[in-house]
Design a protein around this nucleic acid. Sequence first.
DNA 1: AGGTGAACTGCTACACTGTTGCATATGTCT
DNA 2: AGACATATGCAACAGTGTAGCAGTTCACCT
Lengths: 156, 156
Amino acid sequence: MSISSVLPSQTSGASLQAKSLIQEAGERPTLSRQVVLEILLNTPRALTHTEIASAAAEAGNALDRVTLYRVLDWLIDKELAHKIASEDRVWRFNALSRDAQNSSSTHEHAHFQCKYCGQLYCLDELRPAFAFTLPPGFQCEHAELTLRGRCPDCQD
Amino acid sequence: MSISSVLPSQTSGASLQAKSLIQEAGERPTLSRQVVLEILLNTPRALTHTEIASAAAEAGNALDRVTLYRVLDWLIDKELAHKIASEDRVWRFNALSRDAQNSSSTHEHAHFQCKYCGQLYCLDELRPAFAFTLPPGFQCEHAELTLRGRCPDCQD
DNA sequence: AGGTGAACTGCTACACTGTTGCATATGTCT
DNA sequence: AGACATATGCAACAGTGTAGCAGTTCACCT
Ligand SMILES: [Mn+2]
Ligand SMILES: [Mn+2]
Ligand SMILES: [Zn+2]
Ligand SMILES: [Zn+2]
């Protein structure tokens, strides 16, 4: 599956958006960071490390595997991105919307992962809110909700 | 952290329970399978592959790493156990209660994982039931709810 | 402009989790 | 007991992510 299929052709506007988001955070807008953040901003779903590496290479900005891990950690630390665990033991990364950054409950939202192709989407509008009672001694600080099923690409 | 601290001293009753559960499924009750299932039955939380290996070794029944992976897969296939993913990319395994096996919605229940020690518990009584609307083209087949917070062992 | 120092980057080597292939051992059934 | 299916153990490998360290780049200050 080609990554480029999910990536709109890159516009200088997107590049500027990535750069200015980094600059607004008061940080160095290095090429690696711009490239990675731009990829994340330009895709509607969360991408794996491998997918991001391929997308960067396709865009003519191949970067070292380890550097990519560090850039991603950095983006998360600056709250420009977040990562989601899934059953295949691979982290998937997505840009954090400005709204999500500003909300006090940082990016508390549900996710959807396709059982058939593995693609994972953030459901920004769906925030978990449950009523339950835990066994004594357990204190809940956070709830994670992942829906699994069939994505639009995998209709039969 | 010693595994034995969470494992009640093994009784012949527990051993018989593991053996008879396997036999009732019409399968070979090999020593490896009995040992592993007995460990899972005797612990109130889900255990990692490493924890199970240690527990088996402590019980005097050390078994090969790969064999353990295969025994666990086998137990899951026979619906005597299930495994839960978590953010540390390590599967955790727990015996399936008889009730859970018989319920048509096989083991649809929530989990709790401690942010501080990583221990993971099945919340058998807590079945996810949510009302939400997905974006068009997405079909939900399953919902996974994981609560994260502080477990009884990690109170400050 | 040019120098300086903090930081970012790339390379190598490694750790951890899990899988595959294959030879050997075990257990069930006749 | 013998035959056959299958379970086990060993070795080698794959995928994902991390640590250490040397070299480079960039923002800032003369
Ligand atoms: Mn998300
Ligand atoms: Mn469970
Ligand atoms: Zn799909
Ligand atoms: Zn804990």
